[in-house]
């Protein structure tokens, strides 16, 4: 029983982390049809930058903000300098993001080396919280859950209640029609890419504090984002939440109960989704 509850909590924490990473990925994909395979690299770069900022200022919060801002700016630059010149060329954009991820991975290895970094988290979040049945659970992990819920709600309010959010939703449904109504789609694209990249950078700091930062993490979170949005439905933030929940739980239950075949559960979920609902659980047919 204790193991079961523990696994559920671990799964939820992981799901929260996956949601933070995948929500940006799915937004960018939904609006621009841009599969950003450098998303994992943005995550890792955000973690490194956030770490340096946190070291320099001694504040974890500033580190998280630094991760968000730095990667958001990088995302904006990528969109304005590269991707806007190849709109509609899905495959070419994807190949470009692969090129960027190869280069970023190598640059990060050159700058930060192959060692593992560990964040110092704020005192208030340090230690454990008492809970029934399993007795104690790491406070910071509960904090991640809270953050994911807050970010999720904020994204929902932004997309559902603001004018820009309305444009973004319209862009997901029909990009050409949105442009035809006189909206400057380039600005919408730039906003979405900035937010999406920023979220990846922010998730890097949050996730890097829960686990650690090291080369290779970029790949792990890219895979997570891919599977989460394939399962949840591409372009849907709600789908990202649902997908993250399923994958996070599947991964932790796999790890706890059958370590050698843990990955297989994730893939069974993905294959079943593709077989019966190719557009994803909450996705709509393009």
């Amino acid at each position: 029983m204790k193991l079961f509850i523990m696994t559920i909590l671990n799964g939820l924490t992981l799901a929260a982390l996956y949601f933070l990473v995948a929500s940006g990925f799915t937004l960018v994909f939904g609006v621009m049809r841009n599969v950003n395979l450098a998303h994992g690299s943005l995550f890792l770069l955000g973690a490194y930058v956030g770490f340096d900022v946190a070291e320099a200022t001694g504040s974890w919060v500033l580190g998280a903000a630094g991760g968000f801002v730095a990667i958001a700016i990088l995302g904006l630059l990528l969109q304005v300098c590269i991707f806007r010149f190849m709109e509609g060329q899905d495959l070419r954009q994807t190949l470009v993001t692969i090129g960027i991820s190869i280069i970023l991975a190598d640059v990060m290895l050159a700058v930060w080396g192959g060692v593992t970094y560990q964040f110092e988290i704020p005192d208030a979040l340090y230690g454990v919280t008492r809970l029934p049945i399993i007795k104690v659970y790491t406070t910071y992990r509960l904090f991640i859950l809270l953050i994911a819920v807050v970010i999720g709600l904020a994204l929902w309010l932004f997309l559902d209640k603001t004018r820009v959010g309305m444009m973004i939703r319209a862009g997901v449904d029909d990009r050409d029609m949105l442009a035809a109504t006189g909206v400057n789609v380039h600005r919408v694209f730039a906003i979405v890419f900035t937010i999406g990249a920023g979220l990846a950078g922010f998730a890097g700091v949050v996730g890097g504090s829960a686990l650690s930062i090291a080369p290779g993490e970029d790949l792990r979170y890219l895979l997570a984002s891919l599977v989460v949005v394939i399962v949840g439905g591409m372009g849907s933030v709600g789908g990202a939440a649902l997908g993250a929940l399923l994958i996070g739980l599947a991964e932790q239950f796999g790890l706890a109960y059958s370590p050698t075949y843990g990955v297989v559960y994730t893939f069974i979920i993905m294959v079943l989704t593709l077989a019966f609902r190719p557009q994803g659980l909450l996705g709509r047919r393009a």
Partner: peptide, 17 residues
């Protein structure tokens, strides 16, 4: 089951898996 860039995503996920 899907086409275009979805193929890249799915096959990449399979490869990493």
């Amino acid at each position: 089951q899907t086409t275009g860039i979805y193929t890249i995503m799915i096959t990449l996920a399979i490869a990493v898996g």
